[in-house]
Amino acid sequence: MFTKKQIVQWLQAFASEIHENKDYLTELDAAIGDADHGINMDRGFQKVITQLPNIADKDIGSILKTVSMTLISSIGGASGPLYGSLFLRASITAAGKEKLTEIDIQKLLQEGLQGVLQRGKAKPGDKTMIDVLSPATVAFEEAVGSGKNMSEAMQQMVAIAEKAMKDTIPTLAKKGRASYLGDRSIGHQDPGATSCYLMLKSLSDSYSSTVNN
């Protein structure tokens, strides 16, 4: 069970992860994009951080909706609408909720994934954040389906996400800026896939570090 507090802690932890990895994400984007992914994500999530105190009391759906709107209006680029859509769709499934069960989280991931797919029209294998989000969602689903608890399912999801992130290295980009590079996109890890991994990892970490509260 994720409490609202844990969700807020996750958002804070994710923002910190992004902030710490800002240069790293930007360097990844420099190799196959336009050198701003870390800057973009950090701009958005620093804005989110300033708003969290005002909304921490609302229901999880409202919190995620505010995150979505903040990201959409402050990131821009590709990641703004994509993460914005992810959080928007997630917020709808979490509307009115104060805590989230394994099944809630599963729906939230599925809906978030759908949001990104619909907005970005990328397919798995196109070397985008989808390449992490999609298998990670499946992994969580399977874990929950086979009776694993939240903590175990999270760990399974993160393990798959990490592998999937690395698996973007050898692929050829078909969406996003990296696709303009053609073959030269091969051999580089996708920045969006990396930030997506950080999102899932911080979700898992926030759960395990606070599971006793």
Partner: peptide
């Protein structure tokens, strides 16, 4: 105008 090399936002 967006940020440098970054699309502006819908708002």
């Amino acid at each position: 105008p967006g940020e440098v090399f970054t699309s502006p936002t819908p708002d």
